[in-house]
Nucleic acid binder design. Structure first.
Lengths: 103, 103
DNA sequence: TTGTTAATTCGCTAATCATCGAAATATGAG
DNA sequence: CTCATATTTCGATGATTAGCGAATTAACAA
């Protein structure tokens, strides 16, 4: 849980997650959206990967990152519940409910 | 927002917030729940205060900390919304809704 | 094999962090 | 005023962080 919040504490990393919300993207495409160097972006990807928030897949010469929505859900859900809140999806409908992932 | 997530990234600080959920508590009472030194706890309180997550009030010789629920709500709500979720209170009923704090 | 491209890993630096004991501050009691 | 208590501030230390350029690795093309 700490590892997730720590990953979320950096605005660059939060923006990466938002970009990934629209679908998987390569390291290069993601890096192109920021002004920091590639090694720096690579370090940010590593933090997100170690927190479980993204998964990486090597496709030929590029590496594609994909948002792991359920990990984000679980962390947020668990924390929110401890404070008397509930997390509800506002997705199109038909999206699977978020509270029963573990079951 | 970064400042809130950074504050939340430490387990000691998250636990302090949970303890404060049950009502205001003095620095000493809170510190008594942890094994770290008082100066260290004081530093944690400062981080929480600077993030706006707690308010402090001097009462005689003690300092009382109080959870600022709405700040926690706003941060979590804003983040959750960016990912297509909604935050709903599961409180006893009659509790004010959390989505309209700003309005 | 040689070259090109994509991404990471390798040092390195400057800044921030969590932690502590000791010292300082402030309040209230006698 | 003096003492005791509650809490913070000070100063120091070791760990972690975000950042960079340079070097490395992996995949593919010619």
């Amino acid at each position: 849980m700490s590892v997730v919040f720590r990953a979320l504490a950096d605005p660059t990393r939060r923006r990466v997650l938002e970009l990934l919300k629209q679908g998987p993207k390569s390291a290069g495409d993601l890096a192109g959206e920021f002004k920091v160097s590639k090694p720096t972006m690579s370090a940010h990807f590593a933090v997100l990967r170690e927190a479980g928030l993204v998964a990486s897949e090597k496709r030929g010469t590029t590496i594609v990152y994909e948002l792991q929505m359920s990990v984000l859900e679980d962390a947020l859900l668990k924390f929110a519940q401890a404070f008397g809140w509930e997390l509800k999806s506002t997705a199109p409908a038909g999206a699977k409910p978020i509270s029963e992932e573990k079951a």
